[in-house]
Design a protein around this nucleic acid. Structure first.
Ligand SMILES: Nc1ncnc2c1ncn2[C@@H]1O[C@H](COP(=O)(O)OP(=O)(O)OP(=O)(O)O)[C@@H](O)[C@H]1O
Length: 733
DNA sequence: TCGTCTCCTATTTTT
DNA sequence: TAGGAGACGA
């Protein structure tokens, strides 16, 4: 037996690693070594059972997790290697098989992948074309519905037969139009990647045999967050050998909004009655205090009690729960605490992470890092690839790779401005639609200005511009053969005149040009480090790989990350910011008990990322989405764990103006408790700044009361009775 | 046709 | 608050 493989495993884990025949379900809580099981299991298959690594498929939730698994395996095994292991996300695996065999279901080999932005574009156009009121049916929500159906493998044909209400009917109609557009553009969206892969395996016995024969062993990590399409794909791939090992934790299911379906865990046991189930119960990550908080929290969800976790790691430090006056001070407190820990040489920057519910929260924290000169990295956030200048250049690349992509053509046809405005563009599109051709096909068939002018009814000027554009495209496409993506980007910068165009922008031009240069640099880097040389490889890669995937663990800086993205990671020191009602749980999830439970799981995921120290922070006042600062209510998740021993941060870390009312929760509750009374609904009150108003609602919150007041001039506000200093001036009838 | 200005809205999480 | 959509003038 190989020591490397077994020495780092407990009995339950060893059982999971050596159970290689038949379906296996590993259900276990956070930090119990689920991912480790996958890693060691693959190593075991390769180096002990001498399975060729090309016959193993491992699916992970992020590309980062996949890389980590591959690295670990190659470090662990000696003598043999796992270089041919297929390990990646479902999406990247689907791209792989569709590029290989997509032609069997009529896919263009050069299909492009549409991102969110492209998708919305198509939807918006469909809505216009079908004359559907965009106000009543916002493209975002229509897209979400379509995506939901696709994740459940429901095609528009099926949907239009079964739609029960008006909304569904509209969705079905847009879905059909949308899908046709994608087809004629040779484009696939994220859901199509899964759906078409399933279709490929279902429709072609030959291909399906090929893949199910190839993959003797299947492994899926984070199984609780897979959707129906992914589950179906798993079944198709695994139907020959049925050596399928899935690993997950129902309490960490946080992607149902992306159509993940937790019932897959039940389906698995039903579809494979001979499934062996293994629970892992030792947690190797966190201290007992952290685990206690986690299990207290999750106990409030009426669900999913797997076996309780225990740990050898000792009690550890008490949790720290604290409050800043504003989100700014919340951030300062966090940063000062990190500084303190680092100064004491207890931790390094990169051992600390700050997590939050929404990306918008990162801004204040980032500012605090900057002003205190703390090295940091933000995962995700305002995405590089969604900047206008980047999208423009990428659209050029997409068109070069697949000229039938009308959506990308639309984006670049007049960028930089070349005299083809909306009117001319619309004429061109109409003409193309009528003739059942793509824009590019029209432009290549009729590439002389007078032809275009006559057939489409363009002005002379527009027709001339269009001829120029048509020639430009042709030139780009021919010249791009055999050169690398970064060279093509350079062509766009110079030959297309994108640089000159950006330089006209006096305020941001330089920054934007720098971004484009960075894009080129990144392309070059991919070329050198990952041998990504072809255009499709490059485009696939930037479509599928997100920010978290390139998270560099060796860079010594503090990590700023959303709770969602933190899944699967671990840090010695974790701060969760914004422990407030409306933020965590998020306001949009508060009135649905099912969604509320997911919010609680999200908090659970965050808490269980921590190894040694856990800080839960909130702001007393937060700059609100509506207007101005609003007093916030502490998150109910804090009450869930309130009977634990918690501490607050040392006063020394805050540099608040002492004259300010500092509602560090304790003192304001204790001091005011006697003088506090609820205010009756309908009472007329006077507030120093907001003026006169009427109490709409009064609810108890801890030792205090929260009132909703409608002020005559300032509108609706939520206030804490203890602090608002409301003067009662009368009663309404 | 293009660029700027204003107004209006909606406001999470992302492969 | 920010970002998009629509209006309007050059
Ligand atoms: N048998 C073991 N001995 C020592 N350390 C272990 C053992 N098993 C796992 N670990 C360590 O525990 C930590 C958590 O492991 P891992 O990430 O595999 O857990 P997980 O169950 O996938 O967690 P999560 O579900 O929270 O992502 C890792 O640092 C891992 O190295």
């Amino acid at each position: 037996m190989n020591d490397q493989i077994f020495s780092g495993l407990n009995c339950e884990q060893q059982d999971a690693v050596t159970t290689t025949d038949g379906p296996l379900l590993v259900l276990a809580g956070p930090g119990s070594g689920k991912t480790r099981v996958i890693t060691h299991r693959i190593s075991y298959l390769v180096s002990e059972l001498l399975i060729d690594s090309q016959n193993i498929l491992a699916v992970t939730f992020t590309n980062r997790a996949a890389n980590e698994i591959k690295d670990r395996i190659n470090n662990m095994i000696t003598g043999r290697n796992a270089f041919n292991l297929r390990c990646g996300t479902f999406h990247s695996f689907c791209v792989y098989i569709l590029r290989q065999h997509g032609k069997f279901i009529g896919l263009n080999q050069n299909f492009v992948i549409y991102d969110d932005n492209d998708q919305l574009q198509v939807i918006t156009e469909s809505l216009k074309e079908l004359q559907i009121d965009i106000k009543r049916f916002p493209s975002r929500s229509v897209l979400a519905s379509i995506s939901k159906h696709k994740s459940n493998l429901i095609s528009y044909e099926i949907l239009s037969g079964t739609s029960k209400n008006f909304y569904d009917e509209i969705v079905a109609r847009v879905y059909e139009n949308y899908q046709n557009t994608l087809n004629s553009n040779s484009a696939l969206d994220f859901d199509d990647l899964l759906m078409k892969a399933v279709q490929l395996l279902q429709n072609s016995k030959e291909i399906s045999d090929f893949y199910s024969n190839k993959y003797e062993h299947l492994m899926i990590d984070e199984f609780q967050d897979t959707n129906i399409a992914q589950y179906t794909l798993m079944k198709l791939l695994g139907n020959k050998y049925q050596n399928i090992c899935v690993v997950g934790d129902p309490n960490q299911s946080i992607y149902s909004w992306r159509n993940a379906d937790i019932r897959n865990i039940l389906s698995f046991q039903k579809d494979y009655p001979n499934t062996k189930i293994i629970h892992l119960s030792q947690n190797y990550r966190s201290t007992q205090n952290i685990l206690d908080a986690a299990s207290k929290l999750i106990a409030s969800n009426n669900a999913n009690v797997i076996n309780k976790l225990w740990t050898d790691n000792g009690t550890g430090e008490a949790l720290i729960v604290d409050e800043g006056y504003s989100e700014k001070e919340e951030a300062e407190k966090i940063i000062h605490e990190i500084e303190r820990l680092v100064k004491l040489k207890k931790y390094k920057w990169d051992q600390c992470a700050i997590m939050y519910r929404v990306n918008a929260q990162s801004r204040v924290i980032e500012e605090a890092c900057l002003s205190n000169r703390i090295p940091y990295k933000i995962v995700g956030g305002i995405k590089f690839y969604s900047r206008k200048e980047i999208r423009d250049v990428i659209s050029y690349l997409k068109v070069i790779a697949n000229p039938d992509d009308d959506i990308s053509i639309a984006r670049i046809i007049n960028v930089p401005p070349r005299g083809i405005g909306t009117t001319s563009y619309n004429k061109l599109v109409d003409f193309a639609k009528k003739n059942n051709k793509t824009i590019y096909q029209i432009l290549t068939t009729f590439n002389k200005a007078d032809e275009l002018q006559q057939l489409i009814g363009l002005t002379r000027r527009a027709a001339a511009s269009m001829e120029v554009f048509s020639n430009l495209l042709e030139k780009l496409i021919t010249e791009s053969v055999g050169i690398t993506p970064s060279e093509i980007i350079q062509k766009i910068i110079t030959d297309v005149g994108y640089q000159a165009y950006l330089q006209q922008d006096e305020t941001n031009g330089l920054d934007r040009l720098e971004n484009v240069m960075e894009l080129k640099g990144l392309a070059l880097q991919l070329h050198e480090t990952e041998e990504i040389t072809s255009m499709t490889d490059y485009l696939d890669r930037i479509a599928l790989v997100s920010d978290i995937d390139s998270l560099d663990p060796n860079e010594n800086s503090v990590t700023l990350i959303t709770l969602h993205q933190s899944k699967g990671l671990e840090f010695p020191v974790v701060f969760i910011a914004g422990m407030e009602e409306g933020l965590l749980p998020h306001i949009r999830s508060m009135d649905d008990p099912v969604q509320l439970e997911e919010e609680r799981r999200l908090c659970y995921v965050g808490i269980t990322r921590a190894e040694k120290l856990l800080y839960l922070l909130r702001a007393y006042k937060r700059y609100g989405f509506g207007q101005g600062s609003q007093i916030s209510i502490p998150s109910r998740f804090l009450s869930d764990i309130s009977d634990l021993n918690v501490q607050s941060l040392e006063k020394t870390t805050s540099n608040i103006n002492k004259n300010m009312i500092i509602p560090s929760s304790n003192n304001n509750q204790q001091e005011k408790v006697h003088s506090l009374d609820p205010i009756e609904i309908g009472t007329k009150v006077l507030h120093k700044t907001f003026g006169e108003g009427i109490v709409l609602l009064c609810t108890e919150s801890g030792n205090d009361y929260v009132v909703d007041v409608h002020f005559t001039s300032a509108g609706k506000k939520k206030l804490l009775v203890s602090l608002a200093n409301l003067q009662i001036i009368g009663q309404t009838k």
